[in-house]
């Protein structure tokens, strides 16, 4: 099992190197935006991976409330943290892209704003995990995760409407404007490699959580034998 995981890490690193090569050197330069457009190959797969993580977080939380097993709680904790990491990447690379293309760092458009709100929700999730004590953490966190997940589509819907009412500044290009097949290929390689990076990080974080639980169990065993007083 461990060897399999190490093999997977090596594969992921290879994929990441290849997909970065694809993004920087193989994919053609976009005509209107120029090289900046290449940020897209990191930006969008990060967003995708964050989305996958948050979906995992939601599912694990539901399973936890139902079965009350520590494994799904550990998975929920892991996916929330990794999702946060990728979401942070999205929120930083987005403005870096926007500045040269749109001339502004930030616009309150639906996708950006939803990502920001998503990020805020999971920050509060991770804070809750930190601020609640002992055996209560898991239930409370799972409940909040469900709230957060239910909230996201509503946020998206409301901000879409908000924007159509108040037209936003120049929104040129966008990634849907008929991608070149070579671009598409580079994009999918990156999508794959980022997903793998997400999986590796999640597995690591999950194992960390389990190890921590193990230490707690050891402490518990010691306490049960009466040595802890």
């Amino acid at each position: 099992m461990k060897q399999l995981f190490i093999a997977f890490i090596v594969l992921t690193l290879g994929l990441l190197a290849y997909s970065t090569y694809q993004a920087l050197y193989v994919a053609p330069t976009e005509q209107t935006m120029g090289d900046v457009q290449r940020i897209f190959y990191y930006h969008v797969p990060s967003a995708w991976t964050a989305g996958v993580c948050f979906l995992v977080n939601f599912l694990a939380s539901v399973v936890y409330l139902w079965k009350r097993n520590t494994a799904s709680d550990a998975l929920a904790a892991a996916s929330a943290e990794v999702g946060m990491t990728f979401c942070t990447i999205v929120l930083i690379t987005g403005p870096i892209w926007a500045r040269p293309v749109w001339g502004i760092w930030w616009t309150w458009d639906a996708r950006l704003t939803t990502t920001l709100v998503l990020w805020l929700i999971y920050v509060s999730y991770l804070m809750l995990r930190r601020f609640s004590a002992g055996g209560q953490t898991q239930v409370l966190a799972a409940a909040l995760a469900i709230f957060g997940f239910v909230d996201v589509p509503i946020v998206y819907m409301s901000i879409r409407w908000f924007r159509t009412q108040h037209p936003s500044p120049v929104m040129g290009g966008g990634e849907n404007s008929g991608l070149d097949p070579v671009m598409l290929q580079a994009f999918f390689w990156n999508l794959l490699s980022f997903t793998c990076v997400g999986i590796v990080l999640m597995v690591l974080r999950y194992r960390l959580q389990r190890l921590e639980e193990n230490v707690e169990a050891k402490h518990a065993a010691v306490a049960l034998q009466g040595g802890s007083r």
Binding site: G134, G135, A220, A223, L224, S228
Partner: peptide, 13 residues
């Protein structure tokens, strides 16, 4: 019956 508060065992078997 066992009850832990963190690492403290309040009830021990």
């Amino acid at each position: 019956l066992v009850k832990f508060f963190g690492r403290f065992a309040a009830l021990r078997d």
